[in-house]
Nucleic acid binder design. Structure first.
Lengths: 174, 174, 174, 174
DNA sequence: CATGAATGAGCCTTCATTCAT
DNA sequence: TATGAATGAAGGCTCATTCAT
């Protein structure tokens, strides 16, 4: 992650990585057949880890808005704390190493969000808009928040979290 | 632009570029001292062209919301129409070639936006929030809109444009 | 040729070859995309050169036996003088680099031989055997002659040439 | 044998061989100090096995021509049945691994053949030619026969065997 | 202004081999 | 006797870059 973050995915040299890990370049090839496979492995592992570690817990008794806020915050925090990992994914996807690997999209999260939006719409709390658009709004606000935090223009303290989410909420509330 | 879009900025090879342009690689070096300089040149030119070609015209007599909408739409459209250029900028900025080049910040636009926001706040039409946050909201919505359009999940027709901006507006309106 | 002859086809290193030729390894790759292509090129060129330079001239007026002898001698001499080239071809064909490249078999020679054999059979001078077998006999004697010469167990002077061909002739004469 | 036959002697990898045999590469080094030694071992063993298994039995009472024919056939058959082993020997000898290893020449066979030729010459049945040349003739015809059989252009049935030997015989008979 | 020709630096990768266990 | 783990040495190949013409 660090290497990719610092030098870009094309800038990662096998030898450099090996040295960083404290093994010989050859040893890298004992475990990964090629640079491409290494990158793919990382990517795959990341895709799964992300799922697991992003603890989108559903707490049943909260009112909708709070539930949504909690989810949004969890996502945002995750994105901030795993900025380098996210960066890897982004870079990998636009690198020549990423060539349509099958990638059975794992929709666990997506479905959860969809359900939540449906509930909100049902209860008349948020606008009756297509799922893609509602998601886009949240993602957009999330990305910008992350960027503000990472660029040190903002800290994600209670107050700011409240603020950013309230803006998001205003955007989609009925 | 095409090369960067297709293969990533790290995948652009001088020889390939030369061939694409119909000249010899050596000739490239008549005009650019190095690959780095070439990339920088493109970046710089892009930064200026963007300014010029994005015709953020100020029409004095419109009410604030309409003025803002117009600006937002102009930006969004520009981003869609110049997706490859934007992509270049994004990639360049996180590439090893981009090393804090002085970058006399081109604030023409930023200032214009700042002024507009200030007006809106003054008139009590939009929330009294820091400039960075207001911008973030608009950028976030814009980026997501662009993404929806580019991924063919949406067309930016009158209706959708209205919708997306109305969401943005709800997010920041007082 | 020398390198292959000395070290085997797998033992030829691009760097070594480059140095031998007086250029840099990179330069080799300007002209040949890979070691494989280089080898293929040589092989192809060899296959054509062989044809041209092996001056199987048809002299019309000679009696059959003399004509055959002349041909046999020409072949044998050619094989001796181009031992390294022949060695290359042999090695290349059993190397991993040789993978069924189309190779439109150039039958110019084969046809000439076939014709000659047919004439001999027609005239009742040589045994009426399948073409493959007649060729085998001549090739076998040729190969062995070459080997004897190369291993310095024999010189291909007039006398020995006469001897070896006479043996061949005895084998196939009617 | 299979590996060498399929990929050439330069294509044999210790790891691959180990896997094929069902042991670990390291284990190979318990039994053979190096790849070179392994190859040499195989070669040596082959040279001896060849001797033993090629059952050049001397049957005293046959007339010379029949005895010679029998020997020729035995050789030829052996070469066909042990094509892969012969191939190994051929390849090994021109590989960089083969560096003039002492090679106590195994003359058992050679001597037997020499004796036989001497007898033939004595009896005035075959030409009075140097041993090398007589051997060459038989080897040449043998090699070509093997090649015809292996390339499926011929089967070594009674008839063909008779034919090929009769040609050989014609070549050397007095 | 253009380029053909050439190359050094450096990267990915392979593979025989070692060695502690 | 067997091997998992590791690696040094070396080879193939790429690519930005130079320079004489």
């Amino acid at each position: 992650m660090d290497l990719v973050y610092t030098q870009g995915i094309a800038g990662v040299k096998m030898a450099q990585l090996a040295k960083l890990v404290g093994i010989s370049p050859s040893t890298l090839y004992v475990y990964f057949k090629s640079k491409e496979e290494l990158l793919h492995s990382i990517y795959s592992e990341l895709m799964n880890k992300d799922l697991d570690s992003s603890p989108i817990t559903e707490e049943i008794d909260l009112p909708f808005k709070l539930k949504l806020k909690k989810m949004w915050l969890q996502w945002t925090n995750f994105a901030i704390n795993n900025a380098k990992e996210m960066n890897f994914i982004t870079q990998f996807k636009q690198s020549p190493y990423y060539e349509k690997l099958p990638e059975e999209v794992r929709d666990k999260n997506k479905q959860m969000v969809k359900d939540m939006f449906n509930d909100g719409i049902q209860e008349g709390l948020i606008k009756d808009l297509p799922f893609d658009i509602l998601t886009a709004v949240m993602l957009g606000m999330m990305q910008q928040t992350v960027q503000l935090v990472l660029s040190k223009k903002m800290t994600l303290n209670q107050e700011n979290a409240d603020l950013m989410f309230s803006i998001t909420w205003d955007a989609i509330k009925a």
